[in-house]
């Protein structure tokens, strides 16, 4: 059973590297924002899988926090890219 979990972790890392590739190659700022957002969500999945691998629910809390923070980060990035202040 554990082999499945480990291969899932491997595939997650592969996905994160693909996102990093897009993050580096761009070419525009919104492209990079999308890459960061996708990476955040994949890290949520990663944390979940680690949490069931170790049986620690602490990693689940990390996943929740990461999901919310990546959401807030995307909102802020979106506002910034639109060229507006955060209170507009």
């Amino acid at each position: 059973m554990e082999i499945f979990i480990y291969s899932a972790l491997f595939l997650f890392i592969l996905g994160i590297f693909l996102c990093l590739g897009r993050l580096i190659s761009g070419p525009t700022a919104p492209d990079r924002a999308v890459a960061i957002e996708i990476m955040g969500i994949i890290l949520v999945g990663f944390c979940t899988v680690i949490s069931i691998l170790t049986g620690e629910e602490f990693y689940m809390s990390v996943a929740i926090a990461w999901a919310l923070l990546s959401f807030i980060g995307s909102l802020a990035l979106g506002k910034y890219l639109e060229g507006k202040n955060l209170d507009e």
Binding site: L68, S70, L81, E82
Partner: peptide
């Protein structure tokens, strides 16, 4: 916690995608 996180992901992810699309 996993189900709570799922609700968050389902709510927030499309919203942030929309924000980025609008910004682009």
């Amino acid at each position: 916690k996993a189900l709570l996180c799922m609700v968050f992901v389902l709510l927030t992810n499309p919203t942030s995608a929309h924000v980025i699309a609008r910004a682009a």
